[in-house]
Design a protein around this nucleic acid. Structure first.
Length: 275
DNA sequence: AATGGCCCCAACCGCCGTTTC
DNA sequence: AGAAACGGCGGTTGGGGCCAT
């Protein structure tokens, strides 16, 4: 019986009329009970095949077109954190499927990873990522200033140290990714140039207004998140001498004036951020 | 023009955890 | 409670397109 059923099932690329029929029945019955949907629709496809076609191709919420600069960076960074957790990474990239990300990774990054250049990126430490997220958030919020010399993280890294790491990583990242992966880094580079010139002229105070701020959904979410947790007190911390911050209990992290619980690891942080 | 190598991506496979009956 | 069905996930495959030779 099952063998007979198998024989009648179509395989391989989907035809246009199959797609149309599938869309019609998913709209009608919803995204569930794929086996029933497959048989009710009259499609000679397995439920699994129908589900896959919908999830990876027909779903109207899917993004079309090439990966953006930012999506590439997110894939790269989250893969460094989580490994081949494609569905998990996909959840941080609205409109992209695990299959798409997996394919993208395999064709664009895998060879590079297998060569010697990857190791240093896997060491993105949390303080750097947090500082970076805060920095982007600060830009997005167009805050009046970003006082590098007032920052300290829970490991005792000063703002200057984080800033230096940020710049080094950005420079290395920019150079290698542009060369190796053909990324368009113009926005990032212009930001960086601006940062450096501002830093020189303002003694460590960066004017957020000066930057060409991107308005991506991710950065907006970071910004929203920061808005949620920011308080008047934390704003006051911006101007607080970091020596007093460092004397505080180690359970708190003060990066760029926002407080985090040390127990909250980066995964939790980013889940909250992008979920 | 023919061919081979490579890239890209849709689709499939097998496994496993969850849900349903 | 347990078997079957279902759904999700990561790994793999195969075919079309492009490009260099």
């Amino acid at each position: 019986m099952d063998c007979k059923k198998e024989e009648t099932l179509r395989r391989g690329p989907w035809l246009e009329e199959e797609d149309e029929r599938l869309v019609k029945f998913v709209t009608l019955l919803g995204e569930r009970r794929w086996d029933s949907l497959a048989s009710v629709s009259g499609l000679k496809r397995s439920g699994k095949s129908c589900r896959l076609r919908w999830m990876n191709y027909l779903n109207p919420s899917l993004k079309r077109g090439p990966m953006s600069q930012e999506e590439k960076m997110i894939i790269f960074e989250l893969h460094a954190l989580w490994g081949n957790k494609w569905s998990k990474i996909a959840r941080r990239l609205p409109g992209r499927t695990d299959n798409e990300i997996k394919n993208y990774w395999r064709t664009h990054f895998k060879k590079k990873v297998e060569s010697q250049n990857y190791g240093r990126y896997t060491n993105f430490n949390r303080s750097f990522i947090l500082a970076y997220a805060n920095f982007i958030a600060a830009l997005n919020k167009k805050m009046m200033c970003f006082a590098v010399d007032k920052i300290i993280d829970w490991r005792g890294n000063t703002g200057e140290e984080l800033w230096r790491k940020y710049k080094e990583t950005e420079i290395t990242w920019t150079r290698t990714t542009t060369q190796e992966h053909g990324f368009d880094e113009t926005v990032k580079e212009s930001k960086q140039r601006q940062m450096e010139s501002d830093k020189e002229t303002d003694g460590g105070i960066c004017e957020g207004e000066s930057f060409g701020v991107m308005n991506s959904p991710y950065e907006n979410r970071i910004s929203d998140w920061i808005s949620e947790i920011s308080t008047d007190q934390s704003d006051a911390n911006l101007l607080e001498d970091h020596s007093s911050s460092s004397s505080e209990s180690n359970t708190n992290i003060n990066v760029g004036s926002w407080w985090f619980q040390e127990t909250k690891d980066f995964e939790e942080f980013s889940c909250y951020l992008w979920s």
